[in-house]
Design a protein around this nucleic acid. Structure first.
Lengths: 191, 191
DNA sequence: TTTTCTCCTTGATAAAGGTCAAGCCTTTTT
DNA sequence: AAAAAGGCTTGACCTTTATCAAGGAGAAAA
């Protein structure tokens, strides 16, 4: 089965691309395999690519002044990830993107995406609609962060994304939720 | 001066619209004046509009199970707001949008925006590029929420948005940051 | 002008969660 | 097979912040 099936299915949830448009889109995709613990994005380097996960898992995180890790994105199959700020502004990344498992990803360069979006109206529509939906999701995450207790947020995530919760190390999930691993152990032992 | 100047300037930071495209865009805008404390969005009603603030200030908030307010968006001139989830999915809103001051807003219906974006490529590009930038901003807010202390986050916001901080009631800012008003008083008295 | 309401501050107390250390179990590396 | 590393759990202790109550000051309403 073609490795592009996932991303083409993803696109078809939003818009319809013609065969020639699909061919053009595929032509800008770079297939990349990464090993567990390998970095796809590192601070100091411009995040040139927007990345889609065909298979595997990746997290995006940064280190605070004390060297403590804070995970911003946990991405699995069919999810996108990048240091979005660096990608959009062409500035050096502040975040790391690290493979949590051996992974297969599709990478698309900022310039290629921008050129193709200005050429293909439907592709621009796809990214607009998809990003708007992501924005709505992000608001929900913000709400959770400012209004719920740490324990509520932990169980909410576990219930909503059980496959992810069971697949990533607990310290990564802790880091993503802004909770210490010790607290998560205590929450788990209480239920 | 035309009340559309602000939003047209905003658009021109991203794309260039022709005169006829500008006319078409303006034709879908509904001018609305709201008084302080008036609601623009309320739970139970579909959020039909995406709103731009020409003048004034608005906050979007929801009430948790205990009736406590949690502010998700504080918007002033040149900012957009809506219950994005309701707006995109055509489902009843879960949030309130309330004017913090007498305000002048431009409202655009979901159907009108979608129709115009499928017709005008540059408009689709505008919303795509703008929403991507908002997404990058949202990540930064998430980072702040999961990695900083309440006090750090308070001062960070005050330093970054002094005009907003000085313009909205302290309890609104507290609600937005997920901090109690009493804690903010204590932070302020410590510095 | 007077009364009412809103917003903010301060004191006292309690709870949530972080931090540090130690130990155990599983996985990975040698 | 053995050693090392990674990940998780538990105990003890501490800090941060929330909650509740009370009061004051300023703004808004009557």
């Amino acid at each position: 089965m073609t490795i592009y099936k996932g991303i083409l299915d993803h696109i078809s949830r939003y818009v319809e691309l013609s065969d020639s448009e699909i061919k053009e889109f595929i032509s800008i995709l770079k297939t990349t395999r990464v090993k567990k613990r390998q970095f796809i994005v590192q601070p100091g380097f411009v995040s040139e690519y927007r990345n889609y996960i065909v298979e595997g898992a990746v997290r995006v995180y940064y280190l605070d002044d004390l060297g403590k890790e804070h995970t911003i994105i946990i991405a699995i199959e069919d999810w996108f990830f990048t240091d979005f700020y660096s990608y959009l502004n062409r500035t050096p990344a502040e975040y790391y993107a690290e493979a949590l498992e051996d992974s297969l990803i599709l990478q698309m360069k900022y310039e290629d995406v921008e050129e193709l979006c200005s050429k293909i109206h439907s592709l621009s529509q796809y990214f607009r609609l998809f990003t708007e939906r992501s924005m709505a999701h992000s608001y929900k995450r913000t709400i959770s962060n400012i209004s719920k207790t740490s324990e509520e947020r932990y169980w909410e995530y576990v219930n909503k994304y059980p496959q992810i919760a069971n697949r990533v190390p607990q310290y990564v999930l802790a880091s993503y939720l802004g909770i210490s691993p010790e607290s998560i152990s205590r929450f788990r032992s209480r239920s």
